[in-house]
Design a protein around this nucleic acid. Structure first.
Lengths: 228, 228
DNA sequence: ACCTGAACACCGTTCAAGT
DNA sequence: ACCTGAACACCGTTCAAGT
């Protein structure tokens, strides 16, 4: 009887054979995102890409959120863990910079992870980053709860930066860039003198990447406040 | 002849009479959001609420994005302009805190405004806040372009904070709060010592409002860096 | 066990036709 | 000038039935 139970539990031994797998689904999803952009990832398109019925996907992922979380986890697994400096402050900055760069081209991941409790859905690789950041703050002199504040504040900034830039880029790609080179030129200089003076220099300035500098400001400020 | 042209331009004088108006649409949208939540605002539901065909709305708003932008502008019109302190730093902080509080219950607004070029779509009231912030940075000693950095960095943080909190709240409301009181309790303490130590204290800590403190840190750090 | 099509309950948006 | 229903091109998800 044990033999029988084992046989029944072996995959693919009984019933209709699988036409796909978790691995194939995730690979197809990444291909779809790379080719068509993250906003085109839908359950139906993904199924069509693989060549299966849309409803079949629900035997391998709980729902679309779950799919994206699995995608993020798989992606983070492949991100090399950075070499960490000795000082706690440096460790926090390196860990965040790595997360930011990894997620920068994955706004769908950032969007899903706007949900609170996202930490509980992350895999070991992503948790390693979280542990590194929290431990860095504690090593610096924060209490564990202050370390939560540090983590959370930088998370807000990071997710905001990624989402704004993602929406900017997708719009620019959609329509001609010229249409969205918004300008403050037409503004009434008597009522909005500074904005009018900046005029159409805004877009170029806003396209500069200042994440690293602002990250350093946030880390320094948060650590200083917690340990003062 | 001038009389004739004037008569023809008078609203409601010719053709089928309007069944609704921009003002009624915006009022109904606000009611819908207040009653059912911002994630339930759809063109079709809004039309049903007013009692008109969904397609009729398109004679009064360009598309859904435009509707939300108009909603935000109308909302900001009603937000009282705060009394501003004399020092530039204080002006920046008061302006941001006011925007944050206004938008905190309007995540749909924050979402739409993740699109770059959002400044160009804002009305006079919202632009007044932007001008106040940029002018504050310039008065402090920043160049106009550095003031753009200041504005943009805090915008990222603010929008991230609002979106994360919005998604948290809507989930908590949907399902029983217990299901989403995520815990780091089950984590392996040997691999994630700090996270495991925090355990289920995380949600309570993360629900604290630390926006004002982090705002001050950002403003001070950004101004210091720009003028150093 | 696993897969499937049909179906449900929605979206935003366009457009020819009507008043 | 304004409104309308029908239609287009989609979504995520459930579920009874099939292999």
């Amino acid at each position: 009887m044990p033999a029988r139970r084992d046989r029944e539990r072996l995959p693919g031994r009984t019933g209709r054979p699988p036409v796909t797998s978790r691995a194939q689904i995730l690979a197809a999803a990444r291909l779809l995102i790379d080719r068509d952009g993250w906003e085109r990832l839908t359950i139906r398109r993904l199924a069509a890409e693989i060549g299966i019925g849309a409803t079949t996907l629900y035997h391998h992922v709980r729902d679309k959120d779950d799919l994206v979380v699995q995608l993020v986890n798989e992606y983070v697994d492949q991100v090399a863990r950075p070499e960490l400096p000795d000082d706690p402050r440096g460790r926090i900055i390196v860990a965040w910079a790595t997360i930011h760069d990894a997620l920068a081209n994955w706004p769908l991941g950032a969007e899903v992870l706007t949900a609170d409790g996202f930490l509980a859905r992350l895999g070991d690789s992503a948790l390693w980053f979280a542990e590194t950041i929290v431990a860095g703050a504690v090593d610096y002199g924060c209490t564990p709860l202050q370390a939560v504040d540090v983590f959370r504040s930088i998370w807000y900034y990071t997710v905001g930066e990624i989402l704004v830039r993602a929406h900017t880029d997708s719009r620019r790609a959609d329509v001609g860039a010229a249409d969205f080179d918004f300008s403050l030129r037409d503004l009434d200089p008597s009522r909005f003198p500074q904005l009018a003076a900046i005029g159409d220099q805004w877009p170029a300035r806003a396209s500069l990447d200042i994440y690293p500098q602002v990250l350093a400001i946030l880390v320094d400020g948060l650590l200083a406040q917690a340990t003062s």
